[in-house]
Design a protein around this nucleic acid. Structure first.
Lengths: 215, 215
DNA sequence: CGGCATCCGTGACGATACTG
DNA sequence: CAGTATCGTCACGGATGCCG
């Protein structure tokens, strides 16, 4: 699907043939958070042009990375969803995120930000900590991480019945992700508000930070 | 260093800003096998144009991924070498290779092939098997894998004093890498010739497959 | 000869406008 | 809402030339 194949009998080159094109891996990152409509993808990928996005999605369908599913008539829309093969790109994005994490020290004013972009680095750190479903609330939005099924998966928006809720800011989230701050220490000094909604807790919202996009 | 930054405050996007450009990760793959001269890089990356290669190398220097070192006068040449930061991209290439491995089922006649391109997938399988230094001899060339230092590293050409030598063909190498053939089974049915050169063995070559490029 | 720089044709990309 | 159409620009790939 790239402009041109590398034509190399090499596993990494073959992978880059499929996902090495500009924007493709970032589209995968978006779809890893759950099914998305075209317009939502376009909104969460500032800078991508409409034709390139359409072309990439078409290519990803051809490569078996994603499928296009049409929603029931009430809301005539279609959503794009990763196939299992596409989901298997999570380790690739995780490795890229781990390597690129130091570059987050600098925050440029032109940088866009979506809450669930923190999910992949954070999930690596939270994996093995026990609880299955974690809801994370940032000022920029809410996402959730599932750490029970081997590979950690994540999704946009609030979780259904989270085992634990974390409320923190972006900077703290980064510090926890890169290991410079432990979750315990963050709770101790108040930078992280840890909240375990018991079954008896009503569904009412407790903190002010809501989701940007209702789902 | 890409044509244009993604301008996203996301670790993966930052990584793609640095290494997401066409050819960059394949140049890293080459340099992971050891220092390389410009001409060797150009020879082992069929399809890359001279100016793009020069541009990428310059960008990689700027990003702190590689350094250019001038060799002593006898051979007035300069070699490019990865920095530690560049070497840390190995997990990224490993993840890409793991994901792209199934695409090696099809071997196109236009595909180029270098022996050490098998090193990354094979190293993952050989890691934890014990011996520190493995020399691998394919019909297409020789490379070696170091499995002693945590992350497996590899190099082009024969090893100095390998703990074990493997002689096999490309197809068998793939089968071992993807787990469909164990090393033991390969040795048993003769597809893999396992050779443990003892300290008493003289240095003479024993098999017919020599290195393509003397080092 | 190795290490690029230059030139050029083609194609990919990005922004905007427009349509079913 | 979900793309397609159009267009200017830039990056890529190939060839050649320069310079140590």
């Amino acid at each position: 699907m790239p402009r041109r194949s590398y034509d190399q009998y090499c596993a990494a080159a073959r992978a880059l043939d499929a996902v090495g094109d500009r924007w493709t891996l970032l589209i995968v990152r978006e779809l890893l958070a759950g099914p998305r409509r075209y317009t939502d993808l376009h909104a969460d990928l500032p800078g991508v042009s409409t034709d390139v996005l359409a072309s990439r999605l078409k290519g990803m369908e051809r490569e078996g990375l994603a499928t296009r599913r049409r929603l029931p008539p009430p809301a005539p829309a279609s959503v794009y969803q990763l196939t299992p093969r596409g989901t298997e790109l999570l380790p690739v994005l995780a490795a890229l995120a781990a390597w690129g994490a130091p570059a987050l020290a600098e925050r440029r004013p032109t940088d866009a930000l979506r809450a669930h972009w923190f999910a992949i680095p954070l999930a690596r750190r939270l994996a093995g900590l026990g609880p299955g479903l974690v809801e994370v609330r940032l000022d920029e939005g809410v996402f959730h991480i599932r750490t029970d099924g081997g590979e950690p998966l994540y999704g946009d928006g609030p979780a259904e019945h989270p085992d634990v809720r974390l409320t923190l800011d972006a900077q703290t989230c980064i510090a926890i992700s890169d290991g410079s701050l432990t979750l315990d220490d963050g709770v101790r000094d108040g930078r992280v508000q840890l909240d375990t909604p018991s079954a008896t807790t009503p569904h009412g919202a407790r903190t002010g930070t809501g989701a940007q996009r209702p789902e």
